[in-house]
């Protein structure tokens, strides 16, 4: 805990010989977002920036790690050569066409071909992620990712695939009520639910959703969240 000060933390890290990166979550914004109520606790974020797993670090499955790494950049941005500055800037702004254009200008010695391939891999992974979300009935995930990708992939041929998924979503009459239910689940997921009565009401709403949309993605989302909320004291 930072209430003990950075000095103590640094000493502890050094005494343990820990080699991993560390930082300070001042104000506890992140721990609050994740609802961390006890430590140790861990969260796995995939290469697309989506939270894919949360729990005790000792129970993290290797399969989750493998999946989270799909489409990841082979090298972190800070290890790229200084010549890649413009590519990095474009990537941080999620301007993939600019990033690709700048990457094509890089020399082989600066890792040009690898960086180009890595960016194409990231783009491919994001589009596949969107298509997968739609295929499994995660319409909210598809809608959210699609809205972002329309801007991020502007000027690239991959945008057509995004447009196609969004058009399918628009035309899918069954998707509307499911999307609404998914938004309700997301709202409950984000809620603090500090009172027992609030949690009971949330569980009831979630079980209604599960019953209303049997066999769908939202039903499994609702059931899973109901289980988590029920387990809270």
């Amino acid at each position: 805990m930072t209430s003990e000060g950075e000095g103590e933390t640094v000493k502890w890290v050094q005494s343990k010989g820990a080699k991993y990166a560390y930082g300070y979550d001042k104000g506890g914004k992140l721990s609050s977002f994740f609802g961390i109520s006890g430590i140790p606790a861990a969260v796995l974020i995939d290469a697309k920036g989506v939270v894919v797993w949360q729990g005790h670090p000792g129970s993290l499955p290797e399969t989750a790690i493998a999946k989270a790494c799909e489409g990841a950049l082979p090298k972190p941005l800070w290890e790229w050569s200084p010549a890649t500055k413009a590519v990095k800037a474009a990537l941080l702004k999620r301007q993939y066409k600019v990033a690709l254009d700048e990457a094509t200008k890089l020399a082989e010695a600066d890792g040009g071909p690898q960086i180009l391939a890595a960016i194409q891999q990231v783009i491919g992974g994001r589009v596949t992620g969107l298509e997968d979300a739609y295929s499994k009935g995660d319409y909210l995930g598809a809608e959210t990712a699609g809205a972002a990708l329309v801007k991020e992939l502007a000027g690239l041929p991959e945008k057509e695939k995004v447009d196609a998924v969004l058009a399918k979503l628009e035309a899918n009459k069954e998707a509307g009520p499911i999307l609404k239910a998914q938004k309700q689940v997301a709202k409950l997921r984000a809620a603090e639910l500090s009172k027992r009565k609030e949690r009971e009401a949330a569980v009831e709403d979630l079980l209604k959703i599960e019953k209303q949309f049997p066999g769908t993605y939202v039903a499994s989302e609702a059931a899973e969240l109901a289980k988590v909320i029920k387990a809270r004291k």
């Binding site: 820990a18 506890g28 914004k29 609050s32 994740f34 109520s37 939270v51 949360q54 639910l193």
Partner: peptide, 24 residues
């Protein structure tokens, strides 16, 4: 591996149910 975060863990605080599936 292990971007360790210090601070802000309040042991008794009520919290969100879970963030899996959310964008960071």
């Amino acid at each position: 591996l292990g971007l360790a975060l210090f601070g802000g863990v309040v042991l008794s605080a009520p919290a969100r149910a879970q963030a899996v599936g959310s964008k960071l």
